[in-house]
Computed example of a mutant assay.
Amino acid sequence: MVGSSITEDEKTVANRRLKIGFVLLVAGSTALMSLRIDPTLPQVAAAFAVGIGVGVVLLWFVLHNLREFRESLR
């Protein structure tokens, strides 16, 4: 039988990068959307900061529901 080609440490690093990328994608999206209203630089920074918070909450929500879904399959 063939096992996984990556180690547990590599999986951990990859998962962490995916989570950080997800949060930064949401934060970047909010900052880009704020550009539609002709903001000042501090307002863009504030939109990015709020986006980080929203991204963290969305990430928690997705991971929480994914865990429940996996448990329901067992």
Rank of each mutant, 00 (worst) to 15 (best):
M1T: 11
M1V: 09
M1Y: 10
V2A: 12
V2P: 14
V2Q: 14
V2S: 13
G3T: 09
S4C: 07
S5E: 12
S5T: 11
S5M: 01
S5N: 09
I6L: 08
I6H: 13
I6N: 08
T7D: 09
E8I: 11
E8G: 06
E8R: 04
E10R: 13
E10H: 05
K11W: 11
K11I: 12
T12Q: 12
V13W: 05
A14V: 05
N15T: 10
N15Q: 05
N15P: 04
R17V: 03
L18Y: 05
K19M: 13
K19F: 10
I20T: 10
I20L: 13
G21K: 05
G21T: 10
G21F: 08
F22T: 01
F22M: 04
V23E: 01
V23N: 00
V23H: 01
L24R: 08
L24F: 11
L25P: 06
L25F: 14
V26C: 00
V26E: 02
V26Q: 04
A27N: 07
A27S: 15
G28F: 00
G28C: 07
S29N: 06
S29F: 12
T30K: 04
A31P: 07
A31I: 03
A31N: 07
L32G: 01
L32E: 04
L32D: 05
L32F: 11
L32R: 03
L32C: 10
M33F: 13
M33G: 05
S34Y: 02
L35T: 12
I37C: 01
I37A: 12
D38N: 14
P39A: 07
P39E: 09
T40M: 08
T40F: 03
L41Q: 14
L41E: 14
L41Y: 15
P42V: 00
P42W: 05
P42S: 02
Q43G: 09
Q43A: 03
Q43C: 01
V44H: 03
V44S: 06
A46E: 13
A46N: 12
A47I: 05
A47C: 06
A47N: 08
A47R: 08
A47D: 02
F48I: 06
A49V: 11
V50Q: 08
V50C: 01
G51H: 02
G51C: 03
G51R: 01
I52W: 05
G55R: 06
G55C: 00
V56Q: 08
V56E: 07
V56I: 15
V56T: 04
V57G: 03
V57D: 00
L58K: 02
L59F: 13
L59T: 01
L59I: 02
W60R: 15
W60G: 00
F61Q: 11
F61W: 15
V62F: 15
V62E: 07
V62A: 14
H64G: 04
N65I: 04
N65C: 11
L66P: 00
L66G: 08
R67H: 07
R67M: 09
E68H: 11
E68S: 14
E68I: 09
F69L: 12
R70M: 10
R70P: 01
R70Y: 06
R70V: 08
R70T: 02
E71I: 07
E71Q: 15
S72T: 11
S72F: 12
S72Y: 09
L73C: 02
L73T: 09
L73P: 03
R74Q: 15
R74T: 10
